[in-house]
Design a protein around this nucleic acid. Structure first.
Length: 422
DNA sequence: TCTGGGGTCCTAGGACCC
DNA sequence: TCTGGGGTCCTAGGACCC
């Protein structure tokens, strides 16, 4: 039987900020989402103060000022780099690693004689090498490894590592009976509301349900969860990252706008980013979706949201072709008069560039254009993103997002390296 | 004044066909 | 006056995740 581990960094973004600024060591700290909108990470001290996850920043500004909470805009260049260092360390310790999110990885522990010992070694190594503390959960399925990870973090007596098979059955059942069903991976707000109404309130309740009955009433996803909770691995393990099937680039504006040119400039910027991501994974796409919407939180405003699909004449990774299609979609979907708050683009129908066969499609990108795109990407990579861009991006800068308290990109930008004084 | 962004998977329902 | 039903394919949207 395969044993899975889930390694998950504690307070990852907040920790990344603290690693490079020792003066923040014991200070409560929060990290904000893009646009400085809401709180997406909290240090242990900030959690203790009772600041909730996902809280709108504007509601907590006064509180943070009163309690000396340090506020950081998000710095994804830094977190992304720390994340790859973390992954590299895990890959050294274990041959089968699936990177699940920026701060979480699943490991397959086949061939290790003592999974728990390895868990402690992982914890110690990450602490030593990159000053990131993590929890390790171990179990016979991914869902159980996730739940074990939750226990490892919430119950300090386990020392940050919890293995389902180490715990006596009665002890584990007590833990399952203690936690509400929404602590389980895959059970969100809607499902837990329905489950609770049906009398399934705890993790233990759910694990004892009949999988067939759950399938009939709640669907195939939750039925899998039930089987996973009983130790039957149903969710596959992917150690090589598959290319993305859809690529999204979107942002809300710093405020709202009624101006077509402003939306167009923002959209143009997003297309460039999305196309760059598409070429980075060596793919082409055949669908462009353009999304625009008003601010749903402004209930006094008339609301409008629209997604417009624009099929492309042939699969492409050419920014100019994508741009033309997206602009046509925007003309179709833009209704003057609304106060727009966000726009974005999604690329769909993605195929690997090299698998395209000319007899399957009417035509493919001109190799000359592809070389031009490659040049564009390499200049932007060397000189900084946005050095070369489409003219339409410059139409307006009115949409640009806020990031008032971003820390330096310590590890990825020469100009922002940390300075050591002797 | 100010409420994220980027993903995956599943399903309901419409269009179309015979 | 009576006016099918089942299968397939596609898309939009929802639920979930971090």
């Amino acid at each position: 039987m395969t044993i899975y581990a889930l390694v998950d960094a504690n307070n990852f973004y907040a920790t990344c900020e603290k690693v490079f600024d020792p003066s923040l060591a014991d200070v409560p700290l929060v990290v904000l989402s893009n646009n400085d909108g809401c709180i997406v990470a909290r240090s242990a001290e900030a959690k203790e103060l009772g600041i909730p996850m996902g809280a709108p920043m504007h509601q907590w500004k006064g509180f943070c000022a009163n309690h000396g909470v340090v506020i950081k805009s998000s710095n994804y260049a830094l977190y992304g780099d720390m994340s790859s260092r973390m992954l590299a360390i895990l890959q050294k310790l274990c041959p089968d690693v699936e990177s699940y999110s920026i701060d979480e990885s699943f490991l397959k522990l086949d061939g290790f004689s003592d999974a728990t010992v390895l868990g402690y070694e992982i914890r110690q190594t990450l602490q030593q090498h990159i000053k990131v503390t993590c929890g390790v959960g171990i179990g016979p399925s991914k869902t159980l490894a996730k739940f074990a990870n939750h226990i490892a973090k919430k119950h300090p007596e386990y020392g940050g590592v919890f293995s389902v098979s180490d715990a006596p059955k009665i002890e584990f059942e007590q833990l399952m009976a203690y936690y509400p069903v929404n602590e389980i991976w895959g059970v969100g707000r809607q499902l837990s509301k329905r489950l609770t109404a049906d009398g399934i309130e705890t993790v233990l309740d759910l694990s004892r349900c009949d999988a067939k009955a759950i399938h009939a009433r709640y669907g195939v996803v939750l039925a899998k969860t039930v089987r996973e909770l009983r130790g039957e691995a149903c969710i596959s393990f992917d150690d090589i990252a598959a290319p993305k099937q859809q690529i999204i680039a979107s942002r809300s504006f710093a405020g709202v706008t009624t101006d077509y040119q402003t939306v167009k400039a923002a959209l143009s910027h997003h297309i460039s980013r999305a196309a760059e991501k598409l070429r980075l994974q060596e793919s082409v796409c055949a669908h462009v979706y353009v999304m625009i919407r008003t601010n749903p939180f402004r209930e006094q405003d008339p609301q409008y949201r629209k997604t417009i699909l624009m099929p492309l004449p042939h699969p492409t990774a050419d920014t100019a072709v994508l741009m033309k299609a997206a602009m046509a979609a925007l003309r179709k979907g833009f209704i003057p008069g609304f106060r727009y708050h966000k726009c974005g683009v999604m690329l769909g129908e993605i195929h690997p560039m090299n698998a395209l066969q000319t007899d399957l499609f009417a035509s493919v990108d001109d190799p000359k254009r592809l070389r031009l795109m490659g040049l564009l990407d390499s200049i932007n990579k060397r000189q900084g993103s946005g050095t070369l861009h489409m003219a339409s991006t410059q139409l307006s800068a009115a949409w640009h997002m806020r990031a008032e308290n971003r820390s330096p990109r310590y590890t990825t930008c020469w100009e922002e390296l940390p300075v050591a004084y002797a």
